[in-house]
Computed example of a mutant assay.
Amino acid sequence: MVRHVVAEITAGRGGQIVTPNVDILRRARRNQEARAHVESASVVVADGKPLIWASQLAGNPLPARVPGADLIWSLSAAMAEQNRSVYLFGGAPGTASRAEQAMRSRFPRLRIAGHLSPPFGFDARPDQFEAACATVAAAAPDVVYVGLGFPKQERVIARLRALLPSTWFLGCGAAIGFVAGIHRRAPLWMQQTGLEWAHRLANEPARLARRYLVHDVPFALELLAVTALRRLHRRRGGIPRGGRP
């Protein structure tokens, strides 16, 4: 996938990467705007173990989980090799600046076109929204990492794609904070076993408890159960009644 992005940039074509997890999939199933954001992406890769498990249950396994928190590093490594530039957009004040320092330390050859941590609520004020987008557009980067959470970051990307048609965009959620060292990712064993959400919940319970426990966990269980039932019906030659993956 990284090679594809490099090839497209070399050809002068821009695009957008969306990395759906359980929460994004749930929203896309129930909200037209969220669904449109996913459908408008140039590349869609799964960031969420339940999506991988569901694809395996369906008999059409996805190759791997591809978190935005990993992509931000692999894309930056490729941009450094190609003498291309990246831009960091998002995070609390000071986060993008710290992430830029971390990236410069890891990839000395990487060109960083700039960084911006817009004030909270900027997206609800047209003047601030347009000013932020104009700042990014003026830097003319090859890749922009937008870490504002879904779907806010996708709304920003939709505007920036019109201003920077040859640029690639990654909506990366909390990844800028991970790069900056402000947030810590879950241990590798939790990532591999689908428990990264539990690590994040333990670190941010007030913000994430309702999202994970009330919405996402029940949706993930439904997704897996319905997918398993549909495959069982197919094996038996029947047609499942009701339910949806």
Results as ranks from 00 to 15, higher is better:
Pro119Leu: 10
Glu130Ala: 14
Pro141Gln: 07
Ala99Leu: 14
Pro119Met: 09
Arg106Asp: 06
Phe122Thr: 03
Lys152Glu: 03
Leu170Gln: 00
Ser105Lys: 15
Glu130Leu: 14
Ile176Gly: 09
Ala113Trp: 03
Thr167Ala: 10
Val136Asn: 10
Ala132Thr: 06
Ala137Ser: 09
Arg155Ser: 06
Ala131Gln: 13
Val146Trp: 04
Lys152Ile: 03
Ile176Phe: 10
Ile176Lys: 07
Ala140Val: 08
Ala132Gln: 04
Phe150Val: 02
Arg155Gln: 08
Gly177Gln: 04
Ala174Lys: 11
Arg109Trp: 15
Ser166Glu: 11
Val144Arg: 06
Phe178Gly: 06
Phe169Cys: 05
Glu130Phe: 09
Glu130Tyr: 07
Val144Ile: 10
Leu110Glu: 02
Leu160Asp: 05
Ala132Ser: 12
Phe150Glu: 01
Trp168Tyr: 13
Phe169Ser: 01
Arg159His: 06
Pro141Asp: 05
Phe107Asp: 08
Ala132His: 05
Arg125Ala: 13
Phe122Asp: 06
Ala158Tyr: 09
Ala102Met: 15
Arg159Gln: 08
Ala140Arg: 14
Gly121Lys: 09
Ala102Phe: 13
Pro108Thr: 10
Phe107Cys: 11
Phe178Cys: 11
Asp123Trp: 12
Gly121His: 10
Ala158Gly: 04
Ala99Phe: 13
Ala137Val: 02
Gln101Ser: 15
Phe178Asp: 11
Phe122Ile: 05
Ala139Arg: 04
Val143Asn: 08
Arg159Gly: 06
Gly171Thr: 00
Arg125Ile: 13
Ala99Trp: 13
Arg111Phe: 13
Asp127Asn: 01
Val146Gly: 00
Gln128Arg: 09
Gln153Asn: 01
Pro151Gln: 03
Glu130Met: 11
Arg125Ser: 08
Ile112Asp: 14
Ala174Val: 13
Asp123Val: 14
Ala138Ser: 05
Arg111His: 13
Ala131Thr: 12
Arg111Glu: 12
Lys152His: 03
Ala174His: 08
Phe129Tyr: 13
Ala138Thr: 04
Glu100Asn: 12
Leu160Ser: 02
Thr135Gly: 07
Ser166His: 10
Thr167Gly: 00
Gly147Ala: 13
Phe150Asn: 00
Ile157Ala: 04
Gln128Leu: 14
Leu116Asn: 05
Arg125Gly: 07
Thr135Tyr: 08
Phe120Lys: 06
Thr167His: 02
Val144Thr: 10
Ala134Glu: 12
Arg155Glu: 08
Arg104Glu: 04
Asp127Phe: 00
Pro151Asp: 06
Phe129Ala: 15
Arg104Ser: 02
Leu160Lys: 02
Phe122Ala: 08
Trp168Leu: 12
Asp127Tyr: 01
Arg111Asn: 12
Arg159Ser: 05
Asp127Pro: 00
